[in-house]
Nucleic acid binder design. Structure first.
Length: 483
RNA sequence: UCCCGAAUAGCUCAGUUGGUUAGAGCAUCUGACUGUUAAUCAGAGGGUCACUGGUUCAAGUCCAGUUUCGGGAGCCA
């Protein structure tokens, strides 16, 4: 019975046909006892519902409050007012759900993002979060479309894993053993995980990459897209304890192919959203422009949101090696004026301030850095041949985005069995436990490469939002697991 | 985890060198108006000044600790 309704987005694009339609939605504001701004989440633009005098009794009028849900039957007519071309002249109106005006937290005014973060269950009903989450949806859809169209197989890698060799940070433990001290113990007093649900110690995944590689060794190209968990005590605007990650993995590919795919991928996603969510991008663009007005001159960004997205779509990313990056930093005015807090020399991991300088000051566009020192990168990355003495590098690549920092991290994988095993031993990775992984190098090993793209960081970049907690529905961060 | 900052009405914020009864706009409620666009006009209600302790004749204001939030750093996507 509810399916004969018309969506507001559709109605707003239609002519004043004089046809009778049914709409349902939530009241944003009620003006003049006569004009209802109704929203159903299909767009930020509200439908103006006009109730003529005498249509509704006083008791019903009082129930039309911000947040209340309505079913309205009416005629689509040309609007006499200025803010819209068509409006709905109501013939019948039913309040589906009341919303106590004294208790409903959202007002028809601008709220701070901090306040709305505490009301995450209701913030979808605001323009900003409406736009953000419609865009998030579009991005998720576009990701599947991109890889599907290229013939990649969507592989669901496990959420629960016994592998603790991924080396990507602290993990959340998964167990059914009691926490009150009565868990079975070994002779040395440590917990006996043989008695646990899986017969071993298990955790939530920090990456699907290693399993992804197994898939790539059969399907040639796979991608994963799922939740990832890191138990790091990170309190920043770009880290979550539970986040989503896309990890493509391609056989018969090297670091060049990897960079090409990542760059094409990012550009595709931006283009898709600019085409399919133009209204939402416009809204966020204006919102950001308003925000910027209240900032001091030197804190304002050079580009508006749309300008930034268009620029990224139309200009190739800068590609430099780690060694070149270090040289640029050493030659920079910032370095000479001792502006950097951290030391710059070959062998260091690039700090935020260094990445920001390269991306925001020097190149002013996304930058792909390749060829990092082996000592600061993971065991599975392919050792580059013919390196200078003492400067062994790996075929790693990080994509650094303005305002976000690292948005992609990837590499060509070490496909040579002996070199991989030697590297694992060097880095104290338990080789026996990883024999399933090493089997790919024993049986028909091929050059292959892949990367991880942080989904929420991508949403941040496309929406121009600045806090990662505002682009995921219910953020999980240290000390916060509400809703 | 470290550094910096903040916490006053439902929301956003003001509150002077410590000194009467802590204010404004918006929201809410009551009434008026009825082609409005975050409607407008008039009136009303609304406060554990985050918490705990201290200094003082006197603390929203000063000090210490705690909690929470924000920004930055590290870890990373």
């Amino acid at each position: 019975m509810f399916n004969n309704r018309t969506k507001i987005k559709h109605l707003l694009q239609s002519e004043p046909t004089g046809n009778e339609v049914i709409v349902m939605g939530w009241v944003r504001t009620f003006r003049n006892n006569q004009f209802i701004a109704l929203n159903d989440g299909s767009t930020n633009n509200n439908l103006q519902v006009v109730t003529e005098l005498g249509l509704l009794d006083d008791a019903t009028l009082k129930r039309i409050t911000t947040g209340a849900s309505l079913k309205v039957t009416g005629i689509i007519v040309a609007s006499q007012g200025k803010g819209q071309t068509v409006e709905l002249k109501a013939t019948t109106l039913e309040v589906l759900g009341d919303s106590d005006a004294e208790k409903y937290p959202l007002q028809p005014k601008k709220h701070s993002l901090e306040f709305l973060r505490e009301k995450a269950h209701l913030r979808f009903r605001t323009n900003t979060f409406g736009s953000v989450f419609r865009i998030r949806h579009s991005l998720a859809y576009a990701i599947h479309k991109f890889y599907n169209d290229k013939g990649f197989v969507y592989l669901h890698t496990p959420i629960i894993t016994a592998s603790d060799a991924e080396g990507a940070g602290e993990m959340f433990r998964v167990t059914t053993l009691p926490m009150d001290g009565t868990a079975p113990k070994n002779e040395d007093g440590s917990i006996n995980y043989k008695e646990d649900f899986f017969g071993k110690s298990t955790n939530l995944t920090v990456s699907g990459q290693l399993e992804g590689e197994l898939g790539a060794m059969a399907f040639s190209e796979i991608y994963t897209f799922g939740p990832t968990f890191r138990a790091e005590n990170s309190n920043t605007t770009r880290h979550l304890a539970e986040f989503w990650m896309i990890e493509p993995e391609m056989a018969f590919s090297d670091i060049e192919d990897n960079m090409n795919l990542a760059e094409e991928f990012i550009r595709y996603l931006i283009k898709y959203v600019m085409e399919h969510n133009a209204d939402d991008i416009d809204f966020l663009d204006q919102r950001l422009a308003e925000e910027e007005k209240s900032l001091p001159q030197d804190k304002r960004s050079e580009f508006g949101l749309k300008e930034k997205l268009e620029f990224v779509v139309n200009n190739p990313f800068e590609r430099i090696t780690y060694t070149e990056a270090i040289q640029i930093l050493l030659d920079s005015p910032a370095y000479k004026k001792k502006k950097f807090q951290y030391e710059v020399k070959w062998g260091i991991d690039l700090q935020s301030e260094h990445e920001r300088y390269l991306v925001e000051k020097h190149f002013k566009k996304p930058v792909i850095v390749t060829g990092y020192p082996a000592a600061i990168k993971a065991f599975y990355m392919r050792l580059n041949d013919n390196c200078e003495e003492g400067k062994q590098t790996v075929a790693a690549m990080d994509i650094l985005a303005p305002g976000i920092g690292e948005i992609v991290g990837g590499s060509q994988r070490e496909e040579r069995y002996e070199k991989l095993v030697a590297r694992m031993q060097e880095m104290h990775i338990p080789v026996e436990e990883m024999s399933w992984y090493l089997d790919t190098r024993r049986f028909g090993s091929v050059p292959h490469a892949g990367f991880g793209l942080g989904f929420e960081r991508m949403v941040l970049f496309v929406t121009g939002m600045t806090n990662i907690r505002d682009v995921i529905a219910f953020a999980r961060t240290p000390n916060n697991c509400e809703f």
